[in-house]
Design a protein around this nucleic acid. Structure first.
Length: 129
DNA sequence: CCCCTGATTGTTATA
DNA sequence: TATAACAATCAGGGG
């Protein structure tokens, strides 16, 4: 049933009932039961290590930075593809095909993101005190 | 209506 | 050091 949120931000009349995926998709993901995933192959049930309340989101890896662009291109060539896994596989394959020089710009961006993350970490650290 | 899962790799963090 | 969890995306299925 494709909920209204479908593409990203189908702003509802009132307020963004369906907040941008960023809030819920990524935000809750970590916040919400990690135990769920324990059922799966990855993620074992780790009761220890309580999650932090304001833990800043981790910066995207070089691969993710590459994926961001790759997804756009992929969708253009494969508008019919509605599987995220398809892009993931294709992206992963392509990623390995890239050379260090080609990955360099992506890594550079990832590195920059990391710097920003460290800044957030400082604020987080201060808050946690 | 809201949340989870799938698939990729990388990076970060914790034990 | 090693393991675990999560980062984005999109659509669909489950509750």
């Amino acid at each position: 049933m494709k909920v209204t949120r479908g593409k990203g931000a189908v702003k509802k009349d009132k307020n963004e009932v369906v907040k941008p995926v960023e809030d819920r998709a990524a935000g809750k993901r970590k916040a919400v039961l990690k135990a769920s995933r324990s059922s799966n192959k990855r993620t074992k049930n780790v009761k220890s290590a309580k999650k932090d309340p304001n833990k800043p989101k981790r910066p995207p890896s070089a691969f993710f930075v590459f994926l961001e662009e790759f997804r756009k291109v992929y969708k253009q060539e494969h508008p019919n593809v509605k599987a995220v896994s398809a892009v993931g596989k294709a992206g992963g394959e392509k990623w390995k095909s890239l050379t260090d020089a080609e990955k360099a710009p992506f890594e550079a961006k990832a590195a920059k993101r990391k710097l920003d993350y460290e800044k957030l970490m400082t604020a987080y650290n201060k808050k946690q005190y």
